[in-house]
Nucleic acid binder design. Structure first.
Lengths: 215, 215
DNA sequence: ATAAATTTTTAGACAAAACTAAAAATAATA
DNA sequence: TATTATTTTTAGTTTTGTCTAAAAATTTAT
């Protein structure tokens, strides 16, 4: 697989978690910052390689083989992110772009040795699960903070939006993965939350609450 | 710079250490396993970018900018090799191919943090010097074992040939970088050496002695 | 249900990096 | 020096992945 093919497979994987019945050409083009016509071309190629099943105008889904490939790319991406944060002391908002490059390094031995070196982490720095060498993914029943029950203690376990802006906001508010969090009040007008985090009180907008996973 | 351009620059760098007055098209083609005509095409492009100075039929040399770029690629390659051996426990004959890929990862921050994580190593696992962030390279007055004086204690500090075959041979003979070595006899007929390594006696062919650096 | 809007595909073109085959320049040899 | 031999370059293709513009299919709206 070329880097370009890998990028398409990865994007189709992520999009099919949201639209499992078929991913649209335009959606792929949007994610890859390319044109729909380029996507069509690539879908034909991926289809020839039996990585996706594709019928004109009907959207695309991953084949079993494409699905496994996608998970291996995601595995690499997330393991490298752990390495960058845990070993090289990058901040969690700095690692995505670098991991986008590292995820295309070919060696299987490399990624398995890296996994071992990192002591087989289950989650990346943003709380996303890391597929193991067999492609198995640990399921976690997390929910969005916006869906959390009142006066119940939760733990922050992940972010939905992992943009630098959002992550820096969390840093500024000293909200990290692992922080204890309890919703004390919910404003019915705009769903603003009054929360207690590690025994500090904070007001969080609905937008924030919609992008923070708790358990 | 594209990966292909980087590979050309790196090869020209290595070849110009041997032929500093100009590197031949065919020599580059040989190293990159490509055709002379492809090399000519690329030399024009690199010349346009002022990474090399190139006159038709006269061979090619790196410009100052090309030279700095080359050293940064070599720096990345060798730092990744240290990482693979020291941290991921790869054998020294397994790391070259993987580092060939890793050397093209773009981030400056990454390589400097990696350097720090590895505690600023001066040499890679084969004894080759690692340029620092400014492109400066530690000089070492090493010599080939074949040129070593009799009955003088040396230390193995590098290999000239870093093929897997040669490195595995050294492993088998328990010769590693850092091993103490003394030439006790030199057979005048074929230059075979009788050496003492870490208090074991060994017979080494001239070919071996011509590919092992000592100090 | 037909028209309008949107999405997707086709057709044709382009740039990068490789190739082959042939021509031109340089180097080696008689 | 003239002739070979070798090296290097040019000219013309190919492949990969992209693009634009236009056509076709699908979806939405009147």
């Amino acid at each position: 697989m070329t880097i370009s093919e890998e990028n398409y497979i990865k994007v189709i994987y992520h999009l099919s978690l949201v639209s499992p019945k078929g991913v649209n050409t335009n959606a792929i083009a949007g994610m890859l910052d390319t044109k729909a016509s380029s996507v069509t071309d690539m879908l034909k190629k991926l289809s020839d390689k039996e990585l996706v099943s594709y019928q004109k105008y009907q959207g695309v889904t991953l084949t079993e083989s494409g699905f496994q490939s996608a998970k291996m790319i995601v595995r690499k991406h997330r393991l490298w992110e752990v390495f960058l944060v845990e070993k090289l002391n990058f901040a969690w908002d700095e690692v995505h772009e670098i991991a986008e490059e590292l995820e295309h390094i070919k060696s299987e031995a490399l990624i398995n040795k890296l996994d071992e070196f990192l002591e087989f982490p289950d989650f990346d720095p943003h709380g996303d699960p890391i597929p193991n060498a067999n492609g198995e993914i640990k399921k976690v029943n997390k929910l969005l903070l916006s869906e959390a029950a009142l006066n119940t203690e939760y733990k922050c376990v992940g972010v939905k939006d992992s943009s630098s802006d959002f992550l820096k906001y969390l840093d500024k508010q000293k909200i990290a993965l692992g922080s204890k969090i309890k919703v004390k009040e919910k404003e019915s007008f705009d769903d603003t939350l009054l929360v207690e985090i590690d025994s500090r009180e904070l007001t969080l907008s609905n937008k924030i609450a919609n992008n923070l996973y708790v358990k």
